[in-house]
Design a protein around this nucleic acid. Sequence first.
DNA 1: CGTCTTTGACCCGCGC
DNA 2: GCGCGGGTCAAAGACG
Length: 301
Amino acid sequence: MDEQWMIGQTSLSLSLNVGGPTARRGAPPVSKVLVEEDFMSSRKNHEVEALEAELRRVGEENRRLSDMLRALVAKYADLQGKVSGMMAAANNHHQSWTTSEGGSSASAIRKRPRSDSLDTASRNPSPPLTAAGSSGRLAVSVTVGPDQAECTSVHADPSDLSLVVKDGYQWRKYGQKVTKDNPCPRAYFRCSFAPSCQVKKKVQRSAEDKTVLVATYDGDHNHAPPPKQQSSSSRKSGDAAAVRVSAAPVLAQQQRKQEASTAEQVADRKNLVEQMAATLTRDPVFKAALVSALSGRIPVA
DNA sequence: CGTCTTTGACCCGCGC
DNA sequence: GCGCGGGTCAAAGACG
């Protein structure tokens, strides 16, 4: 976005020459015509003045909007830095409790089904996986309520009005409701990958920040996440219905498909891990967070 | 044609 | 008992 260009565009100088006598050539100097021309000229002058006033007003507004935009961009950069820091810290924290703490911390954060899956990107506080085609969505935070409901806030494209949080699972929307405390509607989803899976998901835009989608997960999946190539690429919600119609054979089929594509997935994951590692090591924020985390663990003399 | 989303209606729990 | 609000159902239309 080129703000300077936009600002520059507002300083328009209209070289208008309205109602000038040059337009007429060879016409006899008739007084009546002159009077009319004077009248027209003064009228058009008024119009020009009005237009110029309007232009000035629009220019002012444009400057104001530009200032707001600059402030917004600054805030965005600031927030982005903070998010990077948080994600680096979360990664560090995640590693610390998965590697050193074992069972005790598992009660604080509910274990996720197959959390190593690539498709659970939006549920894990990991860097944004742009390669996964998540349309610019960015997981910001994951919290767990006392009733085992896991709450995920996802930054969404404000222009995207859908309440879809891509987490790699297949969801079937079964309801939508406007709640009292939030003008944005809440959408209700059920896991459609396995008919026996009782997981439910509620997705609602945050009342404070409408670009934030808040997804509340209720329950645990009793199945592995669907293979990546089947999730919401060709279809909006994948092959959910086939699973519902005849569960057992299709599930077996899914398992076979999964086994067949395991080698492919392993290669994909390797690639992704390498990409993520390269990205992270280039990121100065991550480096700084890593240094501070390591210096906290390794006593520096 | 099968499946999904939409949306109004219905159900149920809770507070008064 | 009544009203309110959240959650779910199910018919209808859309879509691939």
